[in-house]
């Protein structure tokens, strides 16, 4: 788009302007949004087909009577359990009991893990002191915390939150530490020459640069929250705690109700997938796309 009417500066720069416009046009990166039909075809269809296939194989196994009916219920039996809970009006109540616990626990973990991560990332002594412990804690199964938590806090919601925190805080803190560590030194130097030092540097440069790592930590933190909570709910059941998905699963075992067990497992899986798909994946993709870090397809 070399406009002939802008004789910027002296006339001798005109050829430079034209050359530059040509170079810019040649180098322009085309970005294209994928049409909805293509998205449906490429992203939605394959998982739907996979789920249908699993259901088909499942039904075939039931028809072939590979094992006793009480060990492998038919998909229709699980569906009946689901519709019974739906008709009783308990389905969302049970799910909400667990989801609300996990979300509240996750928010608490966020509030503790974020400053802890910043502290470990920026203060050398703190890092030397608790950095290795924090990474080590990630590999400790959070189920291990349930017995001590029950003895310390009793059978109540506080115990659940304690287990969630012990599972999720290290992930969130470690994600932030990794994010800060991966900030290119060039950005820090550029920030300093622009006058972004101290807190302004942290706000304008370090935090946005560390965001992808932090988000990855949050995603993992959520997965750990959910897993820890399920472990806690299965092991520690008490009428006072209210019925969550973990207890639903444990009740199924106690009553030898295999369709109920399958349903509980499916619901636990569903919540985990839904939160990842609806919250974390879009967030992560948006951040990466804005920075041009997302490959095509």
């Amino acid at each position: 788009m070399a406009s002939t009417d802008t004789k910027a500066g002296a006339g001798r720069t005109d050829d430079l302007e034209g050359l530059e416009a040509g170079l810019d046009a040649l180098d322009a990166v085309e970005t294209r949004r994928t049409p909805l039909r293509e998205t449906l075809l490429r992203k939605v269809l394959p998982p739907v087909v996979a789920v249908v296939l699993v259901l088909v194989v499942w039904q075939l196994l039931v028809w072939a009577e590979v094992t006793d009916a009480y060990k492998l219920p038919a998909p229709s039996a699980v569906w009946d359990s689901l519709s019974r809970m739906w008709l009783q009006g308990t389905l969302f109540g049970v799910m909400w009991t667990s989801v609300s616990r996990a979300l509240l626990g996750f928010v608490l973990a966020l509030a503790i893990g974020t400053p802890l991560g910043l502290l470990v990332a920026r203060v050398k002594v703190v890092r030397a002191a608790i950095g290795p412990i924090l990474s080590g804690l990630q590999s400790l199964p959070s189920v291990a915390w349930v017995p001590p938590a029950v003895l310390w806090l009793g059978l109540n919601d506080r115990m659940m939150f304690a287990v969630i925190l012990l599972g999720a805080v290290p992930s969130i803190a470690n994600g932030l530490v990794a994010g800060v560590d991966q900030v290119p030194p060039l950005f820090l130097r550029a920030g300093r020459t622009l006058g972004a030092t101290g807190l302004r540097g942290a706000w304008h440069v370090v935090m946005p640069a560390a965001l992808p790592g932090y988000l990855a930590g949050l995603k993992q933190g959520w997965a750990f929250s959910w897993r820890s909570l399920m472990a806690a709910e299965i092991i520690a059941s008490s009428p006072e705690l209210g019925l969550g998905l973990g207890q639903l699963l444990e009740n199924g075992r106690n009553n030898s109700d295999m369709p109920g067990i399958f349903l509980a497992i499916l619901l636990i899986l569903l919540v985990g997938i839904a939160v990842d798909l609806l919250v974390f994946s879009p967030l992560e993709r948006a951040v990466l796309r804005r920075r041009g870090l997302l490959g095509r397809g």
């Binding site: 788009m1 910027a8 302007e17 530059e20 810019d24 990166v29 041009g292």
Partner: peptide
């Protein structure tokens, strides 16, 4: 710097010279 239309462009959408 003769990049009048580039205000809203992301860095990765620009060429090396831009």
């Amino acid at each position: 710097v003769r990049l009048g239309g580039a205000y809203g462009k992301r860095v990765h959408e620009l060429s090396g010279g831009m």
